[in-house]
């Protein structure tokens, strides 16, 4: 079953996590961007994360893509804390130092475009944590996000140390979906293969 599509971005694509990409993903997790997050030491843990990424997408709890440009995994774009009935989700991009602002914004836009069109998600949040690069805020601005709140000490970085969190939002102005009669919709589980019968 396939729930996470591969999507084009300038210079590359965002694509579902795959076991073949574990080395690239491991490199990414060795360079965490989030303050207080330790580099990953055990590559095997990524196998489980890839399993989770499929389960999360299938149950509409989240979606994860690898960002690939110039033939190299340079980051990940993810949606988590997905609340389908409230049509909202929190987005996150993790990148290697080589991931450019343009690539970051492109990946975010592609993921948001898909979630917006396919699942009618309207409200996208992004949490920037004090200590992260200001370049992330440039990418957010490029995608139309605006600052909604600064959550004091919202992120714990050590036993007694905390960082503020700036919460950004982008809310789509598209019309809300009109619910259809249950059973009339053949997009069961939003499985992308099932939606294209005869093509999968």
């Amino acid at each position: 079953m396939k729930f996470t599509p591969e999507l084009e971005i300038p210079g590359g694509c965002i694509k579902p996590l795959h076991y073949d990409d574990i080395d690239g993903l491991f490199e990414l997790y060795k360079h965490p961007e989030i303050p207080g997050q330790r580099p990953l030491e055990d590559k095997e843990q990524l196998n489980r994360m890839i399993d989770y990424s499929v389960q999360m997408a299938a149950t509409q709890r989240g979606m994860m893509w690898a960002i690939e440009t110039e033939g190299q995994i340079k980051g990940m774009v993810s949606g988590f804390d997905w609340q389908p009935s409230n049509l909202r989700i929190v987005m996150r991009v993790d990148g290697l130092p080589s991931l450019t602002v343009e690539e970051r914004a492109g990946a975010l836009k592609a993921a948001i475009g898909f979630l917006s069109k396919k699942y009618h998600v309207r409200n996208f949040a992004y949490q920037w944590i004090e200590g992260q690069s200001d370049d992330i805020k440039v990418a957010l601005s490029e995608c139309g996000f605006t600052l909604a709140a600064r959550l004091r000490d919202g992120w714990r970085t050590g036993n007694t140390e905390f960082s503020d969190v700036e919460q950004y939002h982008w809310v789509s102005s598209d019309d809300k979906p009109v619910p259809r009669k249950l059973g009339d919709d053949d997009e069961l589980g939003q499985n992308l293969n099932a939606n294209k019968r005869g093509e999968s």
Partner: peptide
């Protein structure tokens, strides 16, 4: 408590999109 901002469109309630103000106490 300190007011930290307003989170837009957090839920739909009686046909309206509801914004929520955030307050915190450390």
């Amino acid at each position: 408590f300190s007011r930290e901002g307003t989170l837009p469109s957090q839920q739909e309630f009686e046909g309206e999109d509801i914004d929520l103000d955030v307050y915190s106490l450390l």
